[in-house]
Design a protein around this nucleic acid. Sequence first.
DNA 1: GCGACAG
DNA 2: ATCTTGTCGC
Length: 217
Amino acid sequence: MEIEELKKIQQECAKKVIQRDDFEKLITVGGIDLTFEDIKSNPTKAWASIVIVDINTLKPVYEDVVEGLVDFPYIPTFLAFRELPLMLELYQKIKIKPDVYFIDGQGVAHPRGCGIASHFGVATNSVSIGVAKTKLFGYYKEPEEKRGSYSYLTYKGSIVGAVLRTKDRTEPVYVSVGHRISLKKAIELVLRTSIYRIPEPTRLAHNLLQKVRKRLY
DNA sequence: GCGACAG
DNA sequence: ATCTTGTCGC
């Protein structure tokens, strides 16, 4: 498929994104992550996992894994075309749906307004938030060193996300609206679910995958 | 033209 | 994302 067509898909997706709170409750949070058996080869075997935690205890209440083949390469700004298919398989498989999903990567903090977190939210019509470890798009000033402080990610005068410190004196994470939630709530939720730098749902989903990849699970 | 560039 | 042990700092 041509790159231009993929751009159009992202532009259409961006039009559907809802950047305001559109949910009843926010009790369970699911973190989704992917890992690859051999990132050098294409296609490569991969696994997607989800760990759902209760917002009050931050303890897992459900976890699941799916295995599949990924044949699309990693191309900056087109991550969704590589990782979304397996995430959607996982979505279909899970017996319990969380109230909100944390997706590794950007939401609307994307050149065409539809990073993988927004793409996932729109595709499944669910509430989603993008939580990335590094920046893809936008400008910002370094937030204060204390946990909870943040600065906005901006582009051409508009706010596209936030750079949030989830732990004192630790590198911040990049939060942006995925779908059906406001940036304000997204920031609050990521902070509330963070004990370490990476919020618990995502951190646990990542840990689970490391075990799966090493056949320890 | 040059630099940046989620995972 | 992944390859990898020890090591520095809270």
